[in-house]
Nucleic acid binder design. Structure first.
Lengths: 266, 266
DNA sequence: GAATCCGTTTGATAATCGCAAATACTTAAG
DNA sequence: CTTAAGTATTTGCGATTATCAAACGGATTC
């Protein structure tokens, strides 16, 4: 009971914070639930979970409505704060709006974190039809290999980080066109670097195509990407392979200029 | 040293979670900082803060970029999730867009939590000029007594909750027109209930007026509010006192109908 | 009115957090 | 190149705290 009792190696962490994160994730997954329901998905006692919930309510991360616990609006306001602190968002969201106006489709401003893509901003052109898919996309970080925006980022990341991310990918097949192995992905990424833009030809969702271009920072490192998404019926032939790519790249370049020029006072 | 040593009463909480929240708030305030800078604003050792930061990075709430710690994009995605779970947002954001188009001004969809207003959605009409104020408003929960949207909510809350919130208000003077005592506020709120809409006549920011109307839920409880904000030069006379209030109320009513009709599948 | 289900509180103790101090790593200065 | 001063990171150990049982209270059902 003295040495190596638990075999607990690795760097030191605050266990309670990890547990609180678990609680938050369960609430998120369950879309709100009672103490009993939340406890059921955790390996803890009712009493313990109760203490965590009380604490999280105090801290503003959870709200209680009768016997239902839900995530608090604090996530909305802090999320907004984080976005407004992000140079890419401040430099890019107006350009992404304009891209939506010019193309009439859905446009996105994407960043990367922990090997997943994060939707910083979404704009809806006049022909874009509301889709549940977009809700989910904004809520849950997606893989980088089966979207145009993600591939555009992945293609331009430093080789070491790219390798690391690819190594940890699970190539889950979404449609008939999904890229399902690393070799194929690497080839595609090389093409993307040559062409300067990425395509998504129904690789994530049947019937949907997309065009994405990287936004490169001052030091040539990729800071994010821009994309246009629409139904295959409208994204075809010359428009898909030339006109829209040109517009997407132009938008990405405008954002790059804005990033270098403007100093978002810090 | 046995009984009442620390005099620690009150309900039980997880201290580490409260500490982690402190760390997050310091990072938010500092807009990102080094370990040393973050430690300076906390009554903890460098070593301890370090462990917290490592844990928060693991959990995705903080990212590290060299020696700079910042809040992670997870706040953006969870925030989006929380918004999409909120019936008021799902039922209201399109209506708020239309209100912006019809009035040409800034429009907001507001909810309340912990006695503060939360901006669920903001839409910009064609005459609306970008203002830093709106950024701050979306980031930080505001008081309910010095905005049109806030007063509209406050006026229609159950009396007990209203009293509780008013009791905890600090009436900080923002402009010459700010309401600065509870009695005056209560009178205004009674007027708002009579008229059905709230006005803000340069009470928060000089030169800015606003009109707000409550969104009432099925059980007559207020679930939020809608508002139009613009410069005094454009919000005057009949437009300020009749035309815009009518439009704001109409939008609020449309959202009420959408809330009762649609079942946002749970 | 008993029984069953929730949420909440509490006592006790093993586990943990948090400080101090030591150790690595970077940058600046001599 | 060496020293110095500033970081960040690791570690031992004691005081604090988180966790589980188990009891309690409050609501709803049978």
């Amino acid at each position: 009971m003295t040495a190596g009792s638990t075999g607990n190696d690795g760097p030191r962490r605050i266990k309670s914070v990890q547990t609180a994160t678990d609680v938050i994730n369960v609430i998120k997954q369950q879309q709100g639930g009672t103490l009993a329901e939340i406890t059921a998905d955790l390996e803890l006692t009712k009493a313990t979970v109760h203490t965590y919930l009380q604490t999280l309510v105090d801290c503003g991360f959870v709200t209680r409505d009768g016997d239902q616990y839900r995530l608090g609006f604090q996530f909305v306001t802090i999320g907004e704060h984080v976005r407004n602190e992000t140079d890419l968002y401040m430099a890019g969201h107006n350009e992404v709006d304009e891209l939506a106006e010019r193309t009439g489709e859905y446009t996105h401003l994407i960043a990367e974190e922990r090997g997943r893509e994060v939707v910083l901003y979404e704009s809806r052109g006049e022909f874009a039809v509301a889709m549940d898919y977009h809700l989910r996309m904004r809520e849950t970080p997606q893989h980088l290999h089966d979207t145009a925006a993600g591939k555009a980022i992945l293609a331009h990341l430093p080789a070491t980080r790219r390798d690391e991310i690819i190594a940890n990918l699970e190539f889950e097949r979404q449609t008939a066109n999904t890229i399902t192995d690393a070799a194929e992905l690497r080839e595609t990424l090389a093409d993307i670097r040559d062409r300067g833009y990425a395509l998504n030809d129904e690789e994530e969702i049947r019937g949907m195509r997309a065009v994405g271009a990287p936004v490169l920072g001052p030091t040539e490192t990729v800071v994010g990407s821009v994309s246009v998404t629409g139904p295959t019926s409208r994204l075809q032939g010359e428009r898909f392979h030339s006109a829209v790519p040109k517009q997407v790249i132009e938008t990405a370049n405008l954002i790059e200029v804005a990033l270098e020029t403007a100093q978002f006072d810090r």
